[in-house]
Design a protein around this nucleic acid. Structure first.
Lengths: 223, 223
DNA sequence: CGAGCGCTGTAACCCCGCCCACAGCAGCCA
DNA sequence: TGGCTGCTGTGGGCGGGGTTACAGCGCTCG
């Protein structure tokens, strides 16, 4: 397994090479193809996962089958940590958005690490605090912004995290269908499609297969 | 200061009496009357707070002045902890909903405690994980439920945490105006008022000044 | 290599909930 | 004790966006 990504992850950055080496022995490798789930709502879980490569979507589904996405996560990020500190079953489903490789770490191994290394728990607290901030932000957006605004924000956020400079803008290979993008911003697929079409028409964006090229970051940010 | 509430708080429950006694010396007492703020969005903050008595609302405001509430917190709960692990300024404003007494703890004191007592950080992680779950839940509600449904859910939640049994139901002295309740569920004051009126008309609820009596928990839960 | 399915694009319809407007009404300060 | 201010109750208009219904269209897989 490619441990370079993990070595650079903030959670482990402070560890000595020896401690880190011991830790990697405790990691379980998991490979997933698009659409495969790591865990589902209601499962009992005692592992947290690091994303080595690929992307994971965290989502919940309503009784009637509708879904909404809480986050899209990429390489270096971790998820599934809540179950370690709160005994209740998983409250979200984690699904691969593309070919994805994960490293899983079990509850007891993390606990042991925390006992000896308080700075690891500080890193975890930071990670959770940041996630809580992002989630609060999304909440506010749902209340205050209209769908085009939320789509713009989501694209800019994805661009920040997955964007690569291209000849005429920023290529964001988000690998999401418009349906998934809609679930992410809490809107219907049709409305998101219209918002995207409008952005294209204004020359702010170009659409590609499961990707967009952002042509005018400024204007998009105004929304 | 009445330290009984703090002694029972999960964060300190594991500490020996001597450690706890030393800790209370480091706490700062803060008293607030309704409407007074502990801190505001954008402030630099290096304290977390425990609620000894009263209630605190955490909210954010949009540029145009509109507000939305992230949470209502009561005795024994803590807030303002995110700033300790994420250096950015406060992202929410904390305001007293009623006469409120807080105990503040500074960054460095908590850090010192974490160094020697890993179980304290586990408690903090639990608190954050639970908050994140609640927030995710609210997110899903905003997407999936209509306003009456969200109002019902908010009332039941408040009942769980602040409700007291009364002769004909559960008295929930939430101390919120309908405006604040509306901000909590992400809706307009008028729509919330109508939802409440409908519940009253159906005999599920009785309204009192900044309080409600829930008469039929079952029916309310169906929504 | 053709059929079918999953994804995208678009249009019509309609309803929930926001905005606006105003009418009690209670507490509070002068 | 009378106004003033902040909160609650209610009605009407209208617009954003969900829902439904199809029509292209490209990929995959048989």
């Amino acid at each position: 397994m490619d441990i370079e990504v993990l070595r650079r992850a903030p959670l482990f950055a402070s560890l000595g090479d020896d401690v880190f080496a011991a830790l990697t022995d405790e990691l379980t490798e998991v490979d997933l193809s698009r659409g495969a789930s790591v865990f589902r709502e209601g499962d009992q879980g005692d592992q947290l996962y690091f994303i080595v490569s690929g992307k994971i979507k965290l989502g919940r589904s309503a009784p009637d089958g509708r879904e909404n996405l809480l986050a899209i996560l990429g390489p270096g990020e971790l998820f599934g940590e809540m179950a370690l500190f709160d005994p209740s079953p998983r409250t979200a489903t984690a699904t691969a958005v593309s070919e994805t490789r994960l490293a899983g770490l079990r509850h007891e191994n993390l606990r042991a690490l925390i006992e000896t290394r308080p700075e690891v728990s500080v890193q975890l607290l930071q990670a959770l605090a940041r996630r809580l901030r992002r989630t609060n932000e999304s909440l506010a957006d749902l209340v205050f912004s209209d769908v085009p605004g939320r789509v713009a924000k989501a694209l800019l956020d994805l661009a920040d995290r997955f964007g690569r400079p291209a000849t005429d803008g920023i290529l964001v290979a988000h690998e999401l269908t418009q349906e998934e993008l809609a679930q992410l911003v809490g809107a219907s697929r049709e409305t998101v499609n219209k918002a995207l079409a409008e952005f294209v028409q204004r020359g702010w964006l170009r659409l590609e297969a499961r990707a967009v090229v952002i042509l005018d970051v400024q204007r998009l940010r105004q929304r």
